[in-house]
Computed example of a mutant assay.
Amino acid sequence: MSWTLLPASEFAAHAARWHALNQASVNSPLLEPAFVQPLLTEFGDGGEWLAACERDGRTVAMALLKKTQQGAWQTFQPSQQPLGMWLHLPGQALPELMDSLLRALPGMPLVLGLTQFDSWLHPRPADGGQLRTADYISTARITIAGTFDEYWAARGKNLRANLKKQRARLAKEGIVARMDVLRAPADMAQAVADYGVLESAGWKAELGTAIHPDNAQGRFYRSMLENFAQRGEASVYRYWFDDRLVAMNLCIEGGGAKIVLKTTYDESLSSHYSPAFLMREDTCHQLFEDRLFERLEFYGKVMEWHLRWTDEVRSMYHITHYRWPALKSLHTLVKNLKGGRAPAQPAAQPVPARHTEPSTE
Rank of each mutant, 00 (worst) to 15 (best):
G232Y: 10
K301D: 11
E297I: 10
H355W: 08
A161H: 15
A276Q: 05
Y317K: 03
D135P: 03
F288M: 03
V26M: 04
L170S: 01
R167A: 11
A191G: 03
P90F: 09
A189N: 02
F277V: 06
G91L: 12
A171H: 08
L102I: 07
L21I: 05
T75G: 15
A8F: 02
K157A: 15
E199K: 02
L114G: 02
D127R: 05
F117M: 14
R219S: 05
Q217G: 09
M224Y: 01
S223E: 14
A353K: 04
N215F: 03
H285W: 10
L65C: 12
G46E: 10
T59G: 00
V197I: 13
Q37G: 03
L307E: 09
F76A: 07
W240C: 08
L87T: 03
E32H: 15
P90W: 08
R219F: 02
E173M: 07
L296I: 10
T4Y: 06
G256P: 05
E361F: 14
E226Q: 15
D194W: 08
V197K: 11
R231M: 14
L5Q: 03
E173K: 11
A51L: 12
R124W: 00
A234Y: 03
E199H: 11
L170I: 01
N336D: 13
T360Y: 02
Q69S: 15
K67T: 02
M248C: 09
A189D: 08
L110C: 11
L21A: 06
A15R: 10
L39V: 04
K67D: 01
Y317V: 01
L39G: 14
P109D: 11
K258S: 05
R354K: 13
S315P: 04
H88C: 08
R280M: 15
A63G: 10
G128I: 07
A210G: 12
W152K: 09
R341Y: 08
P38D: 14
H355G: 00
R17P: 00
M62T: 00
Q349D: 08
W240M: 10
A63S: 15
T209P: 00
M188Y: 12
P185R: 06
R103T: 12
S100K: 04
L269K: 04
A234H: 06
T75F: 09
P29I: 09
L94S: 03
G91Q: 10
L170Q: 00
L64R: 00
L163N: 06
K258G: 01
P7G: 10
Q217P: 00
F288W: 11
I211R: 04
R354E: 07
M224W: 00
P343G: 06
A229S: 13
P106Y: 08
L327E: 02
L110S: 13
I211K: 03
F117H: 08
R354D: 10
Q166F: 02
A153L: 15
V36N: 02
A72F: 08
W3T: 05
R354W: 01
V181S: 04
L327Y: 06
A229V: 01
G44A: 11
L50A: 07
I319A: 09
G232I: 13
Y237W: 13
N336F: 09
D243R: 11
K164L: 13
G44V: 06
L182Q: 12
R341N: 12
L337S: 10
K164V: 03
G128K: 09
L292D: 14
W240K: 05
R155F: 09
D290T: 15
S28R: 09
Y195A: 02
A216Q: 14
A13N: 09
M108L: 14
A134W: 07
M85K: 03
I252D: 01
L5W: 03
L30V: 07
